[in-house]
Lab assay of single mutants.
Amino acid sequence: DEEIEKWIETLLKRNISLRVNGKDLEIGSEEFKEWVEKFIKEV
């Protein structure tokens, strides 16, 4: 979905790490990609 890709790009540009389930996810890491894929499937 384009919306999500733009959102991810924005996050990448800002180099933010997300806190997911109490863990810091490094943007661009494998864990982050897995989380994004799960997130996309749920939406």
Rank of each mutant, 00 (worst) to 15 (best):
K6I: 10
D1Q: 13
L11G: 00
L11I: 11
L25E: 01
E26C: 14
E37H: 06
S17D: 06
L12D: 03
I27G: 02
I8V: 06
R14G: 15
E37G: 08
F32K: 00
D1K: 14
N21R: 05
E9V: 01
K23S: 07
V20A: 04
I8L: 15
F39I: 13
L18Y: 00
T10I: 15
D1R: 15
E31V: 05
I16M: 01
R14C: 13
E42A: 11
I27W: 09
E30Y: 07
E37S: 07
E2F: 15
N15I: 15
E42N: 10
I27R: 02
F39V: 08
E30N: 08
K38I: 07
S29F: 11
F39W: 10
E2C: 10
K6L: 06
W7L: 07
K23P: 02
R14E: 15
K13D: 12
W7G: 00
R19Y: 04
I8T: 01
E30R: 10
E5N: 13
V20E: 04
E31H: 05
G28I: 05
K33M: 11
L18F: 03
K41A: 07
I40D: 01
I16A: 05
F32S: 00
K23D: 05
K41W: 06
T10K: 13
K33W: 15
E26G: 09
G28C: 09
D1L: 15
S17Q: 12
V36K: 03
I27F: 12
I27T: 06
K33G: 02
E31I: 04
I4H: 07
E2V: 12
E3Y: 14
R19H: 09
E30S: 11
S17E: 09
G22S: 02
E37L: 07
W7D: 00
N15E: 09
I27E: 03
D1N: 12
D24Q: 11
L11N: 01
K41S: 06
V20I: 10
W35Q: 01
K23H: 08
S29C: 09
S29L: 10
E42C: 15
I27N: 04
E5R: 14
L12W: 00
W35M: 04
N21K: 05
V36Y: 09
K6Q: 08
F32V: 03
V20P: 04
I4G: 02
V20T: 05
R19I: 12
G28N: 06
V36L: 15
V20F: 03
L25Q: 03
G22R: 01
W35G: 00
E9G: 01
V20N: 03
L18C: 13
K41N: 07
E31C: 09
I8F: 08
K38V: 07
T10N: 15
L12K: 06
D1P: 12
I8G: 00
S29H: 03
I16K: 03
I16E: 06
K13N: 13
L25A: 04
N15P: 06
E42V: 11
E30D: 10
E3M: 12
D1M: 14
V43T: 08
I8E: 02
W7R: 01
K33P: 01
T10W: 12
E34S: 10
S29E: 02
F39E: 02
E9T: 02
E9N: 02
K41H: 06
E2S: 14
E42D: 07
V20K: 03
E2N: 13
W7S: 01
W35R: 00
R14Q: 15
D24E: 13
L18E: 01
V36C: 14
E3Q: 11
N15A: 12
E37D: 11
R14K: 14
F39M: 11
R19Q: 10
I4A: 03
